[in-house]
């Protein structure tokens, strides 16, 4: 029997700042959740017409095409430098980068650290899924010790391949950043907290407070070779032991 929508109230919908494009993420991936949370924050702060999306290289390379915002695409690792260029010449714009562990914590370490150190008034959303997704599951700077990846088939050996980089803690050592936090999405409580953290990071930029980093521990069911529930469990029980959740800096 068809259901009438006549007396229903709309409580959930597609954020205004997203267009009709479909995301290109894998089923079960947390990327889509974070991308949506950003769109929601943009809506709630009413900044769609001022916002600039800077897409990285990786699974979210096409991200700038999904928003009803101006956007660009950065060379691998260079997003924070591009964000700096845009924001400095037009401080009215709300500029955010969305980067994976490769872009932020490997090839773009210098750009990422120095944008934070200059206290650029930008928002950096860091997707830490401990693996290189789009290239097919190679080791990331954040890959856990012992974790399997296509380029560390025996598991990551700290003596040969280094240790997982705790980027939020690194950035928290600097004087300039106003908000540095690590969030995750593995249960309802964490989802709500992550959404709030992202909104806060954008709000601080609107209020011209300065640089924010929201690191989000996310899954990669495809390249972890796990089901989504198993991946969530892995995040909650294993990954958080290397990457503790919480706010490291909040000078807002």
């Amino acid at each position: 029997m068809p259901v009438s929508t006549e007396n229903m109230v709309r409580v959930f919908g597609r954020p205004e700042s997203l267009n009709e494009s479909a995301f290109s993420y894998c089923p079960g991936c947390h990327h889509g959740v974070v991308t949506r949370m950003i769109a929601q924050a943009i809506d709630e702060l009413n900044i769609r017409e001022r916002t600039v999306v800077i897409a990285p290289v990786g699974c979210s390379v096409s991200m700038y095409q999904w928003f009803r915002c101006d956007g660009t695409q950065a060379a691998h690792g260079r997003a924070c430098a591009i964000a700096t260029g845009i924001k400095r010449v037009n401080p009215d714009l709300i500029v955010f980068t969305y980067q994976g562990d490769g872009a932020l914590a490997a090839i773009g370490t210098a750009e990422s650290i120095h944008a934070a150190n200059r206290g650029e008034n930008i928002t950096v959303v860091f997707i830490n899924n401990q693996i290189y997704g789009m290239t097919g599951g190679q080791m990331a700077p954040t890959t856990l010790l012992g974790q399997w990846a296509t380029s560390c088939p025996e598991g990551r050996d700290g003596r040969l391949a280094g240790h997982p980089i705790r980027f939020a803690e690194m950035v928290a050592q600097l004087d300039a950043p106003v908000y540095v936090t690590r969030q995750s999405l593995f249960d309802q409580k964490r989802l709500i907290a992550a959404g709030r953290a992202i909104k806060k990071a954008f709000r601080y930029q609107v209020e011209e407070k300065g640089y924010s980093l929201v690191e989000v521990l996310t899954n990669c069911p495809t390249n972890w070779r796990m089901g989504t529930l198993e991946a969530n469990k892995h995040l909650a029980e294993v990954v958080v032991n290397t990457f503790p959740l919480g706010d490291f800096v909040d000078r807002g």
């Binding site: 430098a81 260029g85 037009n90 210098a110 750009e111 650290i113 120095h114 200059r118």
Partner: peptide, 26 residues
């Protein structure tokens, strides 16, 4: 105008990318 001594030549040219994308002579 804007002057930044960048952390590297790579960062500097990417800052140019950003400024140029924002419509500024750079």
């Amino acid at each position: 105008g804007v002057f930044i001594q960048a952390e590297s030549e790579i960062a500097a040219i990417n800052m140019c990318y950003g400024a140029a994308a924002a419509g500024m002579r750079t």
